[in-house]
Amino acid sequence: MKLGFIGTGNMAGAMMGGIIKNNVFKPEEIIGADLFAPGREKVQSLYGIHVTDSNMEVVKSAEVIVLSVKPQYYESVINEIKDSITPEQLIITIAPGKTLEWLGEKFGREVKIVRTMPNTPAMVGEGMTAACPNQYVTKEELDYACKILSSFGKVEVVSENLMDVVVSTSGSSPAYVFMFIEAMADAAVADGMPRAQAYKFAAQAVLGSAKMVLETGKHPGELKDMVCSPAGTTIEAVRVLEERGFRSAVFEAMKACVDVAKGM
């Protein structure tokens, strides 16, 4: 096996889907471990990978190991596998708050680790992942890890001091965006639009707006101004959002997210 996952939940499944779709690895080159039988059976059914209930089987089989369990289980999983990790194996982590220093202390020896923070849009190939290697990872190994991560979206190498900010900016932010889309759709339904159509209009507006930011290179404020005609409908909506503290609410939510990530 070339790639192993310890934990086969939603994020792991999203990563597997992109990796297989883009032919980075074949299904038969991937193994996933999960104590929860329905979880591992789901990814086996969806992607045709090997599955097991043994974390040690993954460690003994795979060249690259993704620790895709929840943060609270990291220490127990590391305690289980640390003595069997070889100097050649590469560990990819996806847990917020678990620093390279913390991870190194838990493994208790020199282990190649790339700390990452992906997000759920990986499920549709539009993920955004930050990556940060420890001192034992070579440039070639980091490039290899980034090749894996880029199979389900975009990836950028960042300094570790930014990783908690990444959690709030891309890791958790899909939830904020989904809430925004839902709120817009609810308002449209209140004004008579069928719900399915309301979700489509709202989601496509968000998708198109994000694409404009990425592809035009223009400042979001400039793009906002392009929509706001004098005495028009949009500027009135913007006025109400400002009055109700829209920017401040987003700002404070993201600060709170960072604070929790730092405490994990």
Rank of each mutant, 00 (worst) to 15 (best):
Pro27Lys: 11
Pro27Gln: 09
Pro27Ile: 05
Pro27Arg: 08
Ile31Ser: 05
Leu35Gln: 10
Phe36Ala: 00
Ala37Asn: 13
Ala37Pro: 15
Pro38Ser: 00
Pro38Thr: 00
Gln44Pro: 10
Ser45Glu: 13
Tyr47Cys: 04
Val51Ala: 03
Ser54Gln: 10
Asn55Ile: 03
Met56Cys: 06
Glu57Ser: 03
Val59His: 06
Val59Cys: 08
Ser61His: 07
Ala62Met: 06
Val66Lys: 03
Val66Asn: 06
Leu67Trp: 11
Val69Tyr: 01
Tyr73Gln: 14
Tyr73Gly: 06
Glu75Pro: 02
Ser76Thr: 14
Ser84Gly: 09
Ser84Asp: 15
Ile85Gln: 11
Gln89Asn: 08
Gln89Pro: 11
Leu90Asn: 04
Ile91Pro: 00
Ile91Met: 11
Ile92Leu: 14
Thr93Glu: 11
Thr93Cys: 12
Ile94Asn: 05
Ala95Met: 14
Lys98Glu: 05
Leu100Trp: 08
Glu101Ala: 15
Phe107Asp: 08
Glu110His: 10
Val111Leu: 13
Thr116Asp: 09
Thr116Pro: 14
Pro118Ser: 06
Pro118Met: 05
Asn119Trp: 02
Asn119Arg: 05
Thr120Val: 13
Met128Trp: 07
Met128Gly: 06
Asn134Trp: 06
Asn134Thr: 01
Tyr136Thr: 02
Glu140Trp: 04
Glu140Leu: 12
Glu141Trp: 01
Glu141Tyr: 08
Leu142Thr: 09
Asp143Gly: 11
Tyr144His: 13
Ala145Ile: 00
Ala145Trp: 02
Cys146Gly: 03
Lys147Asn: 15
Leu149Cys: 07
Phe152Glu: 02
Lys154Ile: 12
Val155Asn: 06
